[in-house]
Design a protein around this nucleic acid. Structure first.
Length: 218
DNA sequence: AGCCAGGCTACCG
DNA sequence: CGGTAGCATGGC
């Protein structure tokens, strides 16, 4: 019988790891835990986020900073931005490159990411609170397919599956995808077996990462 | 002490 | 088109 993504992958991972409560937010984090290198900004079992436009923007910034980067380092950068009152679109857009790149240094690629954040901040301001389309997001310099879908799924609660390196690796281990398969193809494979439900989509992606992280394969 | 992390762009053939 | 160098820090 053919592997079913929901029955054979999602449900077992849910049983193993439980609800992940993505996307993590600074406002929900315990600073003492964070100082020990443990991130605690999750909200397991609650999908009523973001609650404010500030939280929405924070998710977008995190989505850009986490490109090919461990979350622990993104968290440091986010906290620095927040402490310097630079976690708003206008502040980031107006900040000098030197200051911005210095604050986000821990998340790596700080010169490129500094530009990406400025470009995105400009875009976000122009939205005037409206929801961006996937196409609009992709038109922003520094936003690719995965980042666009992360923003749509977690910041705007759209049922768009996020496909990352872990997802491809895990689905490949089930023989569902070939290495080198395009983003959209993998996305379609995930979405066709999963109920079109926000919580399921968010948890599926988060569970992929949880599973991918603790099984240090390759 | 390497290896690698929740990618994307630019440029090459 | 597909393939790949470049970007960079910090944790394990």
């Amino acid at each position: 019988m053919r592997v079913n993504v929901y029955r054979d992958i999602y449900l077992p991972l849910w049983q193993a790891h439980g609800p992940q409560g993505w996307w993590p937010l600074l406002s929900l984090a315990d600073k003492r835990m964070m100082d020990q290198g443990r991130y605690t900004g999750y909200h397991s079992g609650c999908y009523d986020f973001p609650r404010t436009e500030e939280e929405r923007f924070e998710i977008c910034v995190g989505a850009i900073l986490t490109q090919n980067t461990a979350w622990i380092n993104v968290e440091k950068a986010l906290r620095k931005l927040s402490e310097s009152a630079l976690l708003t679109p206008s502040a980031i857009f107006e900040a000098p490159h030197e200051q911005l790149s210095d604050l986000i240094r821990p998340s790596g690629y700080y010169n490129v990411k500094s530009r990406k954040l400025r470009e995105f901040s400009s875009f976000f301001q122009r939205l005037q609170g409206h929801e961006p389309s996937r196409e609009q997001l992709l038109s922003v310099w520094g936003v690719g397919e995965e980042t666009a879908d992360s923003i749509l799924l977690y910041a705007y609660k759209k049922t768009e599956m996020v496909v990352d390196a872990y997802t491809k690796r895990i689905l490949a281990s089930f023989g569902l995808v070939d290495p080198g398969m395009k983003y959209q193809e993998v996305k379609t494979i995930c979405q066709c077996d999963l109920p079109r439900d926000l919580a399921v989509y968010q948890e599926f992606h988060a569970l992929m990462v949880a599973e991918g992280k603790n099984s240090s394969m390759a």
